[in-house]
């Protein structure tokens, strides 16, 4: 059992949880994720680690309430317990002094990007950060990012704040030479970014979020094609060289269970949306 110590709403339907998980906190590194199960009848869902405090023995993660499990999780309160958390899973990010780095975080993934930004800054890099969301209300961590970056750009899909869309990236890339780029966010956004960085030969590391079940290499549902080869995102990733990723294949595989996910969410809401998860 893993006790929820702090809950915070960062934006509408975007929540941060801090939970007691001392053994995971001891080992966690930027770029890794956990898999949690709310209760006995629950599914296993992967979430990226957004922070850890080895002394306090806590980890945090930020999630978007998109379907049954994340909505149910969002209703849980401080003091309640999550049945199982496994982690840290996946490989950690490469953190070293690259020189001039560009960090791009979109949507809910702004949160784990903040962890990378801090680590990259600490490693001595010059850090330019971009945060983006669909609309301005969904942006968060702007001040925090500003405090840890040399430069911050803000973008929204609808232009309600900062730049509209990602086209401005082209101009930045033409003006300034970067040595390394990391991007985390919706797959479509990462695909878009990779198309922009490729002509400049800027190595771009992306975090892939296919459907997962076990998260330890046993089922193969998380398979993605990278440089023409089959990779399991949970053990070979989740970070990959974005210029070698088959994003269209990934987008299709992410939608495999869409009708079932909708049904599950709908039924749960109809039944009044309890948080017990079968306990």
């Amino acid at each position: 059992m893993y006790k929820i110590l702090v809950t915070k709403e960062l934006a509408p339907k975007v929540k941060l949880f801090e939970v007691a998980a001392p053994e995971i906190a001891e080992k966690a590194k930027p770029g890794q994720f956990i898999i949690l199960i709310i209760g006995k009848t629950g599914e296993r869902i992967p979430l990226t680690i957004t922070g850890y405090d080895r002394k306090k023995g806590t980890i945090s993660f930020v999630f978007n309430e998109v379907g049954k499990t994340t909505k149910q999780l969002g209703l849980m309160e401080e003091g309640e317990c999550i049945e199982t958390i496994t982690g840290p899973l996946g490989n950690s990010s490469e953190i070293r002094n690259f020189g001039n780095v560009l960090c791009i975080g979109g949507g809910v993934m702004i949160a784990p990007m903040f962890l990378q930004v801090q680590a990259l800054k600490e490693a001595g890099n010059k850090v330019t950060t971009v945060i983006g969301a669909r609309i301005k209300d969904l942006l968060f961590f702007e001040d925090e990012m500003k405090a840890h970056s040399d430069k911050l750009y803000v973008t929204t899909d609808d232009g309600s704040k900062g730049y509209k869309g990602l086209d401005f990236l082209g101009k930045i890339l033409a003006k300034e030479k970067f040595d390394h780029c990391v991007a985390m966010g919706p797959v479509v956004m990462m695909k878009n970014i990779c198309e922009k960085t490729k002509p400049f030969g800027l190595r771009t590391i992306v975090t892939l979020t296919p459907i997962m079940v076990d998260g330890m290499g046993m089922c193969g549902v998380c398979r993605v094609t990278v440089a023409g080869k089959m990779k399991f995102a949970c053990v070979d990733g989740p970070e990959f060289d974005g210029h070698a990723v088959d994003f269209d294949g990934l987008i299709k595989r992410q939608r495999l269970f869409l009708p079932e996910e909708r049904l599950s969410s709908l039924l749960w809401e109809k039944l009044g949306g309890c948080t017990c998860g079968g306990n």
């Binding site: 009848t41 629950g42 599914e43 296993r44 049954k68 499990t69 079940v213 076990d214 046993m218 089922c219 193969g220 549902v221 398979r223 094609t225 089959m230 294949g249 299709k252 595989r253 939608r255 495999l256 269970f257 079932e260 996910e261 049904l263 599950s264 039924l267 749960w268 079968g278």
Partner: peptide, 29 residues
């Protein structure tokens, strides 16, 4: 990598470990 192609492990893990034969009472589809 097409949809509808499972490894036996994925299929059996969903059905046995996650009890998806009882979906939606169990959450894994």
């Amino acid at each position: 990598n097409l949809g509808g192609i499972y490894s036996a492990n994925e299929f059996l893990i969903r059905v046995n470990l996650m009890k998806s034969y009882a979906f939606p009472a169990y959450d894994t589809p």
